[in-house]
Computed example of a mutant assay.
Amino acid sequence: MANQKRIATYRGTATRKRIATYCGIAAALVSLGAILLATLVAPPETFTWQGKALSDMGRYGAPTFPIFNGGLILSGLLGAPFIWLVWITSRNALERLGVALLALAVVGMIGVGVFFLDHTAVYLESSLHGLAALAVFGIAPFASWVYGTGAALAGDGRLAIASFWFGNVHPLAWLGWLFSVGGASSSSAWFAVPEFVVSVAFSGWILSLAFTIRRRDDGELDVPNR
């Protein structure tokens, strides 16, 4: 009886871990999918790569409003179980700190969708969109670097390298944008390009975490016959 209870508990934990892993994969794909779909269907007056930010697709009244904001919110909600998984599988304090930063970045992503551009026309007097966007773009690379440092200390070289380089994409994308539009008359010229690049990097890191944790747990998730 005790052994059956142990096996049932083990299977329940394994199932929750699998679901959380799938949630992480889905979260990364939903966010990128929503952004890409919005860019494809957005009319020129709503979005262009040359003169708009990605958030313009989620502006109040834009035809892509539900796609863009809904995708970000759904992605963030899907990310919650995955954050739990990464937390319980963390092997040291630095990895846990990286997970905490990841959680803040995900909250910021949800905030971008909730506090969309011109949300003050609907609710609240002060705009919180910029703060939410800063939470995503500003915290995400540090989450990658800190977690990657923890992974290196845990002897997980592949995950450490992947985390560091996904994090490095963020400043490289922004610096590349600054140098390329240094003489542009508009500060928003091609702004959507680095935004999209760092979004891909953030989603790529989430996917690398999900597949690495899944491979790491594969042996543990198989319940022994006895």
Rank of each mutant, 00 (worst) to 15 (best):
I73V: 15
L74N: 04
S75N: 08
S75D: 06
L78D: 04
F82P: 01
I83R: 00
W87Q: 03
W87T: 04
R91T: 03
R91F: 00
R91E: 11
N92Q: 09
L97A: 14
G98Y: 03
A100E: 00
A100L: 08
L101Q: 12
L101T: 10
V106K: 05
I110F: 03
V112F: 05
F116V: 02
H119E: 12
V122C: 07
V122P: 01
Y123S: 07
Y123F: 15
L124I: 13
S126T: 14
S127T: 15
S127A: 15
L128E: 05
L128Y: 15
A133Q: 02
L134S: 13
V136W: 10
F137N: 03
I139G: 09
I139E: 11
A140G: 04
A143V: 01
S144Y: 04
W145H: 08
Y147Q: 03
A151P: 11
L159W: 03
I161L: 14
A162L: 14
S163R: 03
W165P: 00
G167M: 09
N168D: 06
N168A: 14
V169G: 00
H170V: 12
A173H: 11
W177Y: 14
V181H: 05
G182H: 09
S185N: 06
S187P: 07
S188V: 14
W190V: 01
A192W: 00
V193E: 05
E195W: 15
E195R: 13
F196N: 05
V197N: 05
V197I: 15
V200G: 05
F202K: 02
G204Y: 08
W205R: 05
L207F: 06
S208P: 00
S208E: 02
I213A: 00
D218Y: 08
